[in-house]
Design a protein around this nucleic acid. Structure first.
Lengths: 112, 112
DNA sequence: CGCATACTGAACTACATGGTTCAGTATTCG
DNA sequence: CGAATACTGAACCATGTAGTTCAGTATGCG
């Protein structure tokens, strides 16, 4: 198949499609945390959590910095504006289709 | 691993993490389409497109109906409100952290 | 009826994902 | 120095994903 990483939008949505990663973002919203902190919260191994954090890093939702032996994770620079914009656009699309349906229904009513 | 399908939010974000599927939503926003129509637009086999459509169906973003030998796909009942709400919440979280940082910077400035 | 069209299902390929364990390395602290 | 802590990398497993081909079935049309 060859995934070749595609667009940043793909990466954002993919990163958000996992409940653990959304939880990590929530925790980092309250305070920065180490891999150990996060691993404890979500009851998984350091290695497992590191992988989630790396996915979030690659989607630019989280940045990390290794200080001494600990790696500190914090909320990253991406606002998810792109993802939000896409969803808003989609909602408008959907609403437009719905209005159209309304019109058809109204037209049918007018005929009687 | 055992994926057991988790939350609808997972399904929504996962469905949106593929450019082809976002394109299908866009096309269905303009008009309903058959599997053949969609497969042609995105240059893939019927079987391949059917799989994408099924993912969108399972995320309740698209509904389909088989009429005669053709399957008609249309934009589904889900507004993606949940996904939007999550992203909005996340943005507020991020903004809050940013404001906090601003305060720290301002405090540092006041000290001089 | 017979052919073309539209889809479906199974099997296969190649790679991604979400997790684990185990065996390291690097850092801190007594 | 030596032990504990914090992370890392490689290897592995089971399953999911994005596509294909090929061999059907079901429908519509001349």
């Amino acid at each position: 198949m060859v995934q070749y990483s595609s667009t940043p939008l793909d990466a954002s949505f993919a990163a958000l499609s996992d409940a653990t990663r959304r939880g990590v973002l929530a925790q980092l919203g309250r305070a920065d945390a180490s891999i150990t902190d996060l691993a404890q919260t979500f009851h998984m191994t350091l290695t497992g959590m590191r992988k989630h954090v790396r996915v979030l890093e690659q989607a630019e939702l989280v940045t990390t910095e290794k200080i001494g032996r600990a790696r500190t994770c914090r909320l990253g620079p991406r606002h998810l504006d792109e993802a939000l914009a896409w969803l808003e656009w989609y909602r408008q699309l959907w609403d437009a289709r719905f209005d159209e349906l309304d019109e058809i229904v109204l037209d049918l009513g007018a005929k009687e």
